[in-house]
């Protein structure tokens, strides 16, 4: 980039920094308020057995209501989320330590999150809970069926699990092949059936449709018929393009070329839809920065009270 461009970028960043500084100095923003609620559990004799407080996020405009208070942990979290969002966006200007730091946090936290969720949702209730149900009920999942008995067949998946984790050991890597084979075999088994039924047989059946489509009055619906014929021709020509056992020459070549055209339209549609998706995601992140963090007049601030009519008057909103 030339010097003029650098100067323009510098001005843009300075303006953004001044705006942020102005918001910090003057505006109320970047705070999270919560409403506290006391949960009380009574014992069989009616006495209070246990109680604790739960906190629910409320819109900032309700901060003066009774029981609403500023949440320090969530406010810190909001700022952490906003700063990390900006760190990720900083990659657009170029690779930098802020981006790499944010990336490292998400890698580490996500991997551990998956481990935790796997432990509490599957390993404890479905593995340990089947082998030693009484013990599992005493601490982790007391809601397990009280009549459930130990099922020692589950020692086999436990053994396979240990063998899978053996992969982390410096020697005996082959041991993990057994559970891996189980995994691969099972995947091959259910995918074979699933794909053949839903993506092969059902798709062929759905393509064998009448070319003459009748309308409500019993006559021929010309446009629907053209659509049906085009679809059938499209499927066949695309399949011929995928078929490489025949040389793509003559009629086969021309049909294959038609197939390519159909595929290009498919990819064009895919591109259009992908753009749509990505912009929606960007909108959501910018809404987070503008509304949740910077409080630039959130259209959903009144969501809880349900009295907002800030947008879409044309829709009767």
């Amino acid at each position: 980039m030339n010097n003029r461009a650098n100067a323009i970028w510098a001005i843009i960043f300075v303006v953004a920094a001044i705006f942020l500084g102005w918001r910090i100095a003057t505006g109320n923003f970047g705070r999270v308020y919560v409403k506290s609620q006391q949960v009380t559990v009574n014992a069989d004799d009616g006495s209070v057995a246990a109680s604790w407080e739960t906190h629910t996020k409320v819109p900032p405009r309700d901060h003066q209501e009774e029981g609403v208070s500023l949440s320090i942990p969530r406010t810190i979290g909001l700022w952490a989320g906003a700063i990390l969002t900006l760190c990720i966006f900083s990659f657009l200007y170029g690779d930098n330590p802020f981006y790499k730091t944010a990336e490292s946090i998400v890698v580490g936290a996500s991997a551990a999150y998956l481990m935790v969720i796997g432990f509490w949702t599957q390993i404890i209730p479905n593995l340990i809970g089947n082998i030693v149900p009484d013990w599992t009920r005493t601490w982790a999942t007391p809601g397990l069926d009280p009549e459930a008995k130990a099922d020692y067949v589950y020692l086999l998946p436990l053994m396979l699990s240990i063998m899978l984790l053996w992969r982390l050991a410096p020697v005996g890597g082959w041991i993990s092949r057994w559970p891996l084979a189980f995994f691969i075999g099972a995947t091959a088994g259910f995918r074979l059936i699933g794909f053949m039924e839903a993506d092969f047989v059902a798709q062929i059946r759905a393509t064998i449709i009448p070319i003459w489509v009748k309308d409500a009055a019993g006559g021929v619906d010309i446009w629907a018929s053209i659509g049906a014929l085009t679809m059938i021709v499209g499927v066949i020509s695309c399949l011929i393009y995928f078929f490489f056992s025949l040389e793509h020459k003559g009629v086969v070549g021309k049909t294959a070329r038609l197939g390519i055209w159909f595929l290009m339209v498919t990819f064009g549609a895919g591109f259009g839809y992908t753009v749509m998706g990505r912009i929606a995601l960007l909108s959501q992140r910018l809404e987070f920065l503008f509304y949740e963090w910077l409080w630039l007049d959130s259209p959903t601030a009144d969501a809880v009270s349900g009295t907002a009519s800030l947008i879409m008057p044309a829709l009767g909103g």
């Binding site: 995947t187 091959a188 995918r191 092969f200 499209g234 499927v235 399949l239 159909f262 339209v265 498919t266």
Partner: peptide, 25 residues
């Protein structure tokens, strides 16, 4: 119509590929 035809052909192709890979395994 057009996307449906292209996607359906791709689906059929993938299904055949998955079936042959699964059988090989």
């Amino acid at each position: 119509v057009f996307n449906l035809a292209g996607s359906r052909a791709i689906n059929i192709g993938i299904a055949l590929g998955i079936a042959s890979t699964s059988l090989k395994v």
